[in-house]
Design a protein around this nucleic acid. Structure first.
Length: 203
DNA sequence: CGGATCAAGGTATACTTCAA
DNA sequence: TTGAAGTATACCTTGATCCG
């Protein structure tokens, strides 16, 4: 693989490639014949994720998974992991690292990694993610009930985390379970860099 | 003590859907 | 048909911590 971005797209598509942050991922979806739709899943059975890395494939950023404002009460009530929107998003994904060093025309895609949590070899990974999920749910509850402002804050597992993700005007998160706002701005699940490192090692 | 590194939180832009 | 709403793509800034 190691396809150069400049060889794949035209000038118009390159416009604003740096400022338009998700542009690379959208272009890739178009290149493989997908539409940029807000459907839950990119493919019929899984997700496509791109992420910035260095030239050797080392991840440089956490990777966004999904916003939590619409599933907050599932989390607080510790809904079964395998029934969550989160699991639906991460159970089968195609991870494509993209090196963004230097001139955007010279950015390039690195070999993809396909991760299906139902594969035998990913048993350990799946177990860890499940553990992280319940751990994070618990942290959210504790935060809501005991933090100074009564709001949720960054909660970490080993491989995933929840932290703020919003822009003005903010979208506060309302919990029906607590019958009040539990954050003044939206939050989201992210893969930590440890996740990317893990799947690169266990490919 | 000052520069480097890292995590957390905050911000910017694009696209589709859907309602007016 | 048009624009707001909603979710997507990560990127950027700041402040804390680490390390010589």
């Amino acid at each position: 693989m190691n396809r150069k971005l400049g060889d794949l797209v035209d000038e118009e598509q390159m416009e604003g490639i740096i400022r338009a942050k998700g542009r690379t991922g959208q272009l890739l979806e178009i290149l493989i014949g997908n539409k940029n739709s807000p459907r839950t899943l990119d493919f019929t059975d899984g997700e496509l994720k791109t992420n910035k890395c260095d030239r050797y494939g080392k991840p440089l950023e956490t990777m966004f998974i999904t916003q939590i404002n619409s599933i907050i009460d599932d989390l607080i009530s510790k809904k079964d992991f395998y029934g969550t929107h989160l699991y639906e998003k991460i159970s089968n994904l195609l991870y494509v690292p993209v090196c963004k060093e230097g001139d955007p025309w010279n950015w390039f895609f690195l070999p993809y990694i396909h991760v299906n949590l139902n594969d035998e070899k990913n048993y350990e990974l799946k177990a860890q993610l499940e553990k992280d999920y319940y751990n994070i749910c618990e942290q959210l509850k504790i935060c809501i009930e005991t933090s100074d402002d009564g709001y949720i804050h960054t909660s970490n597992g080993e491989l995933i985390q929840i932290r703020s993700k919003d822009s003005k005007p903010y979208g506060p998160i309302f919990s029906n379970i607590y019958n009040r706002y539990i954050s003044d701005k939206n939050h989201a699940f992210y893969f930590k860099k440890e996740f990317m490192k893990y799947i690169a090692q266990n490919r």
